[in-house]
């Protein structure tokens, strides 16, 4: 029984080696038999999360012990899934228009930006060029605006919005921003379907290279998750970060290859003698560029794009997680 007892640890620490081994030698079989029927109410199901021994000790270097933390995180994933589902339900009440807006909203947005593009530099373009431009715009705008910006916006408010639950229960708080990443992804899925309708509707071919596109989506997801964790933490300390975030997202949109093609920027830089690799300072340059190149043009991006995207996404994810966990203990007293 003792051996099967698993630790359930929230933002806490546990030293299984020292504690449970010491005790399991002391507590022999009889003790376990005694315990099972009555006190623990132990059904099989219970044991999966009943942890009987928790040890809480100070966090070392501000971080909880990682192994039990991530184990608990993994065990509680039904909670994150349920929370994400519930927030999708709450956001758009199950009405016809509620669902429709999920798709209509990005479509109208794409039209607005396309109009803007036509006014600024649409002259002298052939119909075909404009179609490609619109399809590229849709590919990038949907994934940026719904998925990535969704991670940021909803992720930022996830901890502050968690209020009572955070004060009442001990669970790995990382579940909150991660649930919002899931929410953003599921809101993005219908727009992905919309994108393919647009792509095929305008008679553009479906390239086989598109099967590689999910790699860039994954990078974007990891990067978005990292950003969500960072902003979720910051919002606990600065509640007005949301106001600032709106403008940051808008600027990031203009600075990323959404309204323009990636090569427009690199050609421009090369002409004035700056190596185009500088563009990878913006993580979204490679992620969105690669996504669109694979989906719209069927071009496989150069190796440096893959490398830049992967490195950025992993760095952001790890840094975000560490930052979040190091502050997690304080959330209960700062909310």
């Amino acid at each position: 029984m003792r051996a099967r007892e698993r630790e359930r640890v929230g933002s806490s620490t546990l030293d299984p080696t020292r504690e449970t081994t010491a005790r399991s030698s002391a507590a022999d079989g009889t003790h376990g038999v005694e315990r099972q029927p009555g006190q623990m109410n132990a059904t099989r199901l219970d044991e999966d999360f009943t942890s009987s021994v928790h040890v809480y000790e100070p966090h070392r270097n501000g971080l909880p012990r990682l192994r039990p933390y991530f184990k608990a995180l993994w065990q509680r994933r039904p909670f994150a899934i349920e929370m994400s589902r519930a927030s999708i339900r709450a956001d758009n009440v199950n009405t016809f228009f509620g669902q429709i807006w999920l798709v209509l909203n990005p479509l109208l947005l794409a039209c607005v930006y396309f109009l803007l593009l036509m006014i600024i530099r649409g002259r002298n373009n052939s119909f075909d060029e404009n179609v490609v431009r619109f399809v590229h715009l849709c590919a990038c705008l949907f994934v940026f605006h719904i998925f990535f910006a969704g991670c940021l916006r909803q992720g930022a408010s996830s901890v502050v919005g968690g209020g009572k639950l955070l004060l009442n229960m001990s669970f790995p708080r990382l579940l909150l921003p991660l649930a919002e990443v899931r929410t953003a992804f599921f809101k993005f899925l219908p727009t992905l379907a919309l994108f393919f309708v647009i792509l095929l509707g305008f008679g553009r071919p479906l390239h086989w290279e598109a099967i590689m596109a999910p790699a860039f989506l994954l990078m974007l997801g990891l990067f978005g998750a990292g950003m969500a964790m960072i902003f979720a933490t910051m919002q606990v300390y600065f509640r007005d970060i949301g106001n600032f975030l709106t403008y940051m997202i808008r600027m990031w949109l203009y600075l990323s290859p959404i309204l323009w093609y990636p090569e427009m920027a690199s050609d421009g830089l090369e002409r004035i003698g700056i190596p185009p690799q500088v563009l990878h300072v913006n993580p979204l340059y490679s992620m969105l560029g690669g996504w669109s190149d694979l989906l719209v043009r069927g071009q496989i991006p150069a190796a440096e794009w893959w490398i830049a995207g992967t490195v950025w996404s992993i760095v952001a994810f790890v840094a975000g997680a560490v930052f979040f966990m190091s502050r997690e203990r304080e959330f209960a007293v700062r909310l």
């Binding site: 806490s12 040890v55 809480y56 000790e57 209960a332 007293v333």
Partner: peptide, 9 residues
């Protein structure tokens, strides 16, 4: 376990 101790156990 919501607010782990800063010292002790």
């Amino acid at each position: 376990g919501i607010l782990p101790p800063s010292e002790g156990r």
